[in-house]
Amino acid sequence: MQKLTADQTDGLTELINIGVGRAAGVLNDMTESHVSLRVPAITLLSQDTIDEELGDMSDDLLASVQLRFAGSFSGTAALVFPTESANKLVTALTGDDEDDQDLDEIRVGTLNEVGNIVVNGVMGSISNVLSEAIEYTVPDYKEDVIANLLRADTAGAQMTVLLAATHFTIEELRLGGEIILLFEVGSFDALVAALDQLMEE
């Protein structure tokens, strides 16, 4: 599994924070709420250790929005919603106050959009530092246990997973929670090289 230096980790964390910050801006414009998003730290994992890292939710069915991308940097970006967070977010953003609901079609649509906005925000700030263009597939929504969320598409390949636990708060409702941003890539080389260059400048 790939390793990053402390500086590289800091740079990547900042890049991701710029991305989620932009996503929060989009969400706020759209819903007139005050969502803030923050990624305190990132972790690099091999696929085998991801279950341990997210152990307490390894049996839960999680909602996720995924985006595959290809180019100098390729892989899958996913936003994963623990059930409680999914419900809180949809309720806050839509004012749909029937709590404790299953994720029906209506709410799934909303989650799909929220995930899309956050993932796009982060992909936007990543692609800004890369010189080469990135190609994207249409975003995909799935519900599964964490182990199956990413792995299915990339069987066999040795992949590194970047895990960014993302904290959200919604001021006026005084609520918060965690969502998880995952990147699964073959290598961070291109991204790390671009980051190194940026930091040297």
Binding site: L93, G109, E113, N116, P139
Partner: peptide, 12 residues
């Protein structure tokens, strides 16, 4: 700008 696709949901 060639960025990733966007989703606009029915509820929002």
């Amino acid at each position: 700008e060639g960025g990733p696709p966007a989703v606009f949901s029915a509820q929002l």
